[in-house]
Nucleic acid binder design. Structure first.
Length: 109
DNA sequence: CACCGATGTCCAA
DNA sequence: TTGGACATCGGTG
């Protein structure tokens, strides 16, 4: 695992979609997967997991459809996840406990 | 070819 | 409402 040599076509697609996300806005794995014409949010998460361009790629702007932060750097919780919340917070996206404070900031609406 | 992985959705208790 | 299992797509071994 952990191959950050050259991103595949699919990963490029995921990174491109993330780049089109404006600051102060977030998207869910399912929504992003849908944008990629995919039905598996896991495939999208896997691409972000490798994220050879982190943090150049705003992978921290991707959250779970259930309004949960999801994960960061391959971890669903811990200091890494905390950093993700801090990045979103710096963009104006606040999290209440373990849930998104304002789901209205979600893209795809 | 087989198993794992930042999820999602459905069913059962 | 909470917990568990299955489904789906791609990547890596």
């Amino acid at each position: 695992m952990k191959i950050n040599k050259e991103p595949t076509a699919f990963q490029e697609r995921v990174y491109a979609a993330l780049r089109r996300i404006p600051r102060g806005r977030v998207i869910t794995y399912a929504r992003l997967a849908r944008t990629l014409a995919c039905r598996s949010p896991r495939a999208v998460g896997q691409a972000l997991r490798c994220n050879p361009f982190a943090p150049s790629v705003p992978c921290h702007r991707v959250i779970s459809s259930n309004l949960t932060p999801g994960g960061y750097q391959g971890k669903t919780s811990g200091a890494q996840l905390r950093r993700k919340l801090a990045l979103l917070k710096a963009e104006g996206v606040l999290f209440t406990g373990n849930r998104l404070a304002d789901p209205r900031q979600l893209l795809g609406k």
